[in-house]
Amino acid sequence: MKDGATRDGYGACLEEIGADPRIVVLDAGVSDSTRSKKFGDKYPDRFFNMGISEGDMVCTAAGLATTGKVAFATSFACFLLGRTMDQTLVSVAYSNTNVKLVGTHSGLAVGEDGPTAQMIVDLAYTRAIPNMTVIQPADYEEAVQATQALVDHVGPAYMRLGRPKVKGIYDSSYKFQIGKGNVVKQGQDVVIFATGGMVQESLEAMKVLEADNINPTLVNISTLKPIDSQLIVEQARRNGAVVTAEDHNIIGGLADAVLEVMSDNDVSVPFRRIGVRDTFAETGSLKELYFKYGLSAQHIENTVRSLLK
């Protein structure tokens, strides 16, 4: 299991599989941070640094995609989605072009740069767009595999990545599949559906809980759309209580995605949401922000305990 940021997994995968002539990569002037530069250094002919103009980048990617390319358009999640809702709707989603939007530095996890850099509404944005596939890998290995999967996937997609290093969860025996959740640990009484860095945060919480003989189930929802409804229904029924955990606003992201599935399938069990509680955060370290805004392992732990009372 390799520790590393999901953005590093993305960069490493692109570098490794970049000989595939279908792949083109675009960036909006932050390629060093997003790691798309790794591809750019190796395959300069198929790398387009568009400068700080995300709308232009997304549409240029759409144009390249119409010529048969798999176009990865990369920037920080806050600008990539925040500035291109319209371009993403018209030139990517409605046109159904083979563009993979990759947003790094998502969530409060980005830390000290503050709320203008902390993208907490991108899952809501992208989930609401027809034709759009939405993915958020939980660790380095899953990011590598998700990037590979996106090369073979046809159509618009958004992949949400993080800046900080995350402890490895998966090794190469893991097989990521778009649309499939993964049971990280099968337990009982409560199931935690987590996404992105919150999978690791949940594992931290579970260590403490397990010492008290509390053994929740942990499911990694790395594809938010199309979501693994079958697994969600099965695990919600089997465990009888649900917690969702995401570094995103509690509106429109994983919590709503899981609730939608439960509602559509008449699954009615106790339900708690871990996420940013519809507020802008502030500057601070990841640890401080997660603690202050209710995303820490301790909050997950307490939430699980409260459901078992």
């Binding site: 002539p21 002919d45 997304v58 549409c59 240029t60 144009g63 995609a65 390319k69 030139s91």
Partner: peptide
Amino acid sequence: HPKTPGVEIATGSLGQGLSVAHGIALGARL
């Protein structure tokens, strides 16, 4: 919309077409 034969890309929100056309033009080079 590109479902119509002869149409390359959906348009209707002004300002996007030149970027798209540029992407297609870069495709020719590749």
